[in-house]
Design a protein around this nucleic acid. Structure first.
Lengths: 298, 298
DNA sequence: CCCTTCAATAATAATTAATTATGACTCCAC
DNA sequence: GTGGAGTCATAATTAATTATTATTGAAGGG
């Protein structure tokens, strides 16, 4: 009887996540037959079918579901073993999979990558940019090592390290530059441009205005801060952006920036990782570097 | 970079336990160089030394000790996975979602649940009672594992297992007990009580009378066989019920039961499941039990 | 010292897993 | 139902990994 291999568990884990042989194989960087064969091997070894052949969309058997959960857990343990090894070395080396939310990534990453490549030769940063809930899912599943996002996230099993606070500033057309800065009530009467659903920055902006949801009449949604600022430049409305975005975003748009009077809207940016990760000390080190990279943008 | 393998962990686990390459290799049924090479591979992959070379007796590095513990734990999880598979495939256990049509459910289930709870401790039956089309939809969507209903269903992708045949009997008021049994033509002239639209039993009864739809003038619809029999008892008309319902339904009603002369109306009861389901063998086993449970009602 | 023991290395054989090519089956649209 | 796209399984072959045996180098004990 052939022994169980980690390779089989890796392929099966991918298959369970993608629900598709071809995509799972691509994710594992192998051909589809290679994955097919290994899955069948795994079924033979375990002596029980993992999925219903010939059913589409792909369906796992009850045992398959159990097995996939267990496989994921085993693979995570194995990854931690590798982390453990890295933690034993005294520097930040190897591959580090880091997630960053879209309202931070473009302003932080260029400088962050610059800093780490200077000081930490041997560190290979893999960056994933997406919204907070997805980052947290990936993090907990062990597909990311750490993430830079707005605190608090308040998830059990995750450690948060606050790095710095930053204010949100008002972006309005140049023609409005000399008008008085609106307070939160006045802001509610203006056409406020926001990021689309799912971005934490959107929620923070809304909460500053004491709104729970957007007022459909008065808002317009964009997929990046850059888009929003361009629209402001075209006179369509006003928007908020974090301080770290100011330098980049005002470079190519005819807009005026204004600080709010107290109470200023703010967000806290921090680093998050799995509490159980053996790389905790390395993450704190990384936090320093992220902080430094962000500082130069503000 | 070569990936971590379970084989490496197995060898290293043995090495840590025996403290001796030769003995560890023997325990793994491989030659000493084979183990040596794999251990070195593991060290390369992890990027840290696991043991102090050139020391005798063999000494693990601090990281090696941690690693050995973790390896043992991982190997244990993998073994558990194999156990899980055996438990899953050995007998009919776990949760089984079964659908039953309303003209079978009340007569089959009490005894079926009795039998399974006796013989298959560990089997958790989830029952859903509804009409055939809905059962088939649920089945194909994977929200049911199997269903007991009247055959044929003739759906692609589903397997049918005939279990038994049963006749329909005539239910009429006690005062009619000594009248001759009507044939199908005579039945058309009587006031025939039927289940409401959607029940396959209704269609089977109509088809016996050579009718495609009910004659509105002469029929009355009920939502359960029990209701129909009660109405017969009140002298409102006559109805048909399957044999398995006789014992239960005549207990509390003043009605008389009569067998039809040939050709008798009949239905075939069977079990249906997704062709692709790996539980086929278990379903056949379940079929036996359903058959037995039904037998005792007839 | 020499001898024994142990682990590493080298050359080669065996095994395992990959690739490409192809076939079968399902689902959908016409 | 017929044709086509999509999806997974299978087959033949090649590439890779892992094993074996034979041998060497290094350490410790008489």
């Amino acid at each position: 009887m052939t022994p169980l291999t980690l390779r089989q568990l890796r392929y099966f884990d991918a298959l369970a996540r993608f629900g598709h042989f071809g995509n799972a194989a691509a994710a594992c960087s192998v051909s589809q037959p290679a994955l097919s064969v290994q899955i069948k091997e795994l079924e033979t070894t375990l002596g029980a079918p993992l999925l219903e052949r010939g059913a589409r969309p792909l369906r796992l058997t009850p045992f398959g579901i159990t097995c996939a959960e267990r496989a994921t857990q085993i693979l995570q343990s194995v990854d931690e073993l590798a982390d453990l090894a890295r933690a034993a070395s005294d520097r930040l080396t190897g591959t580090l999979r880091i997630g960053v939310i879209p309202t931070i990534a473009p302003y932080l990453l260029p400088r962050l990558i610059g800093l780490t490549s200077q000081r930490h030769t041997g560190l290979d940063l893999h960056v994933r940019e997406t919204i907070t809930p997805k980052l947290l899912t990936e993090l907990k599943a062990g597909r990311l090592d750490t993430a830079v996002l707005a605190l608090p996230v308040d998830e059990p099993g995750l450690t948060e390290l606050p790095l710095f606070d930053e204010a949100f500033v008002l972006v309005r057309p140049n023609v409005d530059a000399n008008k008085p800065v609106p307070d939160r009530e006045a802001l509610r009467e203006m056409r406020l441009l926001l990021l689309e659903e799912g971005h934490c920055f959107r929620d923070q902006a809304l909460s500053f205005c004491n709104l729970r949801t957007a007022l459909p009449r008065e808002t317009l949604e964009g997929s990046s801060l850059s888009t929003l600022v361009q629209m402001v430049g075209a006179g369509i409305g006003v928007t908020l952006i974090p301080e770290m975005a100011v330098a980049v975003e005002t470079r190519s748009a005819e807009v005026s920036i204004a600080q709010f009077n107290d109470p200023q809207p703010r967000r806290q940016v921090g680093l998050v990782w799995r509490q159980a990760s053996p790389l905790t000390a390395r993450f704190r080190e990384l936090g320093e570097i992220v902080h430094e990279a962000a500082k130069s943008q503000r």
